[in-house]
Amino acid sequence: MDNNQPIIVKRGAKRGGGHHGGAWKIAFADFMTAMMAFFLVMWLMSSATPEQKRAISGYFQDPIGFTESASPHVIDLGGTPTPSPDRTLNADVEPAMQQSESSLDAEQAQTFAEQLENQRLELLLQELQNKIEEDPDLTRYMDQILFEITQDGLRIQIMDAENRPMFDLGSARLQPYFEDILLAMADVIQTMPNKISISGHTDAKPYAGQGDFGNWELSASRANAARRALVAGRYPEEQIARVVGYASSALFDREDPFNPVNRRIDILVLTKKAQRSIEQGQQPSMEAGEDAGAAGTSAEPATGDAEPLQPGAVRERLNIFEDGVLKFDEPES
């Protein structure tokens, strides 16, 4: 230690060139995979027809296929080789086969679309039920609200109770609680693209008002009052397919025509098929209702905002509002 001599450490020289690890191989493999996928996509796009490109675009815009522009089917780019048939021998058979395949595809697409629509209606029903159960102001009226999925759509029936009518006696003026129910319905229903149909019904008690105003006019006026409440709740007016009055022609309780539940407002969230039937002037299969019913009537004369409508000489079966005008259809034979 006194000499302070330096300590020299000798290390053996590395033999061979060595290497820097294998991380670069992983990066290079990822790069080659991405390039292969890129060129594969470029090749597919160059070989796809305009119709196939539109189908691809529609699929990526809406993979679930809820909108009409989207395709719910696997996109066929024609990559699977198939033996070409002898066109000289099968010239007559091939068009028939193509027509059969196209009709089968259309039926499958229609079935798939209807299944999706039913699922959406079931989700809407659940959301409406949750809305009522979570709102203390609406929970007390649960016994007056009935939900039902029919072949024409989701039917929401809001009925009179024994001592809790939805309208003023003999008029189309809404009770405040009924207006609250309609506003809550509008909040949820407007999330659906489907149009709705609103129908008013009365019980079988004769209307004791003056002139030609009766249960037909009263049921139509009340249905139209419900429409105005929904629109006031920011429901799009263009989403209302029609407003109908049925009087007592479709009772909910057929055994007791004077039961208060026969007085009701029905809101039907239409399926696309039922909506097309209405647009074509046809009657949806369940619109009149095998179990559908009615909306308020009374033995006292109409007061308040009951609208003085003139039905004419014939007692019509349906009163339909279109663009604010009450129209009458001839009765069925």
Rank of each mutant, 00 (worst) to 15 (best):
residue 213 F to C: 06
residue 213 F to H: 11
residue 213 F to G: 03
residue 213 F to L: 12
residue 213 F to R: 12
residue 213 F to D: 04
residue 214 G to N: 13
residue 214 G to H: 09
residue 214 G to V: 10
residue 215 N to W: 04
residue 215 N to Q: 10
residue 215 N to F: 05
residue 215 N to C: 12
residue 215 N to I: 07
residue 217 E to M: 06
residue 217 E to Y: 05
residue 217 E to N: 07
residue 217 E to H: 06
residue 218 L to S: 03
residue 218 L to I: 03
residue 218 L to N: 04
residue 219 S to T: 06
residue 219 S to M: 04
residue 219 S to W: 03
residue 220 A to H: 01
residue 220 A to T: 05
residue 220 A to S: 09
residue 220 A to Q: 03
residue 221 S to T: 01
residue 221 S to Y: 01
residue 221 S to G: 04
residue 221 S to K: 01
residue 222 R to C: 02
residue 222 R to Y: 03
residue 222 R to I: 06
residue 223 A to V: 01
residue 223 A to C: 00
residue 224 N to M: 02
residue 224 N to R: 05
residue 224 N to E: 05
residue 224 N to H: 05
residue 224 N to D: 03
residue 224 N to L: 02
residue 224 N to F: 05
residue 225 A to T: 01
residue 225 A to Y: 02
residue 225 A to P: 02
residue 225 A to V: 03
residue 226 A to I: 00
residue 227 R to D: 00
residue 227 R to E: 00
residue 228 R to A: 02
residue 228 R to E: 02
residue 228 R to D: 00
residue 229 A to K: 01
residue 230 L to Y: 02
residue 230 L to V: 04
residue 231 V to T: 03
residue 231 V to N: 00
residue 231 V to F: 04
residue 232 A to V: 05
residue 232 A to H: 08
residue 232 A to N: 12
residue 232 A to Y: 06
residue 232 A to K: 14
residue 232 A to R: 14
residue 233 G to Y: 11
residue 233 G to C: 06
residue 234 R to W: 14
residue 234 R to D: 15
residue 234 R to V: 13
residue 234 R to P: 04
residue 234 R to E: 15
residue 236 P to R: 08
residue 236 P to T: 11
residue 236 P to V: 13
residue 236 P to N: 07
residue 236 P to E: 06
residue 237 E to S: 15
residue 237 E to P: 11
residue 237 E to V: 15
residue 237 E to H: 14
residue 239 Q to K: 15
residue 239 Q to I: 12
residue 239 Q to L: 14
residue 239 Q to D: 13
residue 239 Q to W: 11
residue 240 I to Y: 12
residue 240 I to N: 10
residue 240 I to Q: 12
residue 241 A to K: 14
residue 242 R to D: 14
residue 242 R to I: 14
residue 242 R to S: 13
residue 243 V to N: 02
residue 243 V to E: 03
residue 243 V to A: 07
residue 244 V to Y: 13
residue 244 V to R: 15
residue 244 V to P: 07
residue 244 V to A: 09
residue 244 V to F: 14
residue 245 G to W: 09
residue 245 G to S: 08
residue 245 G to D: 08
residue 245 G to T: 10
residue 246 Y to I: 09
residue 246 Y to K: 13
residue 246 Y to E: 05
residue 246 Y to C: 09
residue 247 A to N: 11
residue 247 A to S: 14
residue 247 A to P: 08
residue 247 A to Q: 09
residue 248 S to C: 13
residue 248 S to V: 08
residue 248 S to P: 05
residue 248 S to A: 14
residue 250 A to D: 08
residue 250 A to V: 12
residue 250 A to T: 14
residue 251 L to M: 11
residue 251 L to D: 04
residue 251 L to S: 05
residue 252 F to W: 10
residue 252 F to N: 04
residue 253 D to L: 07
residue 253 D to A: 08
residue 253 D to W: 06
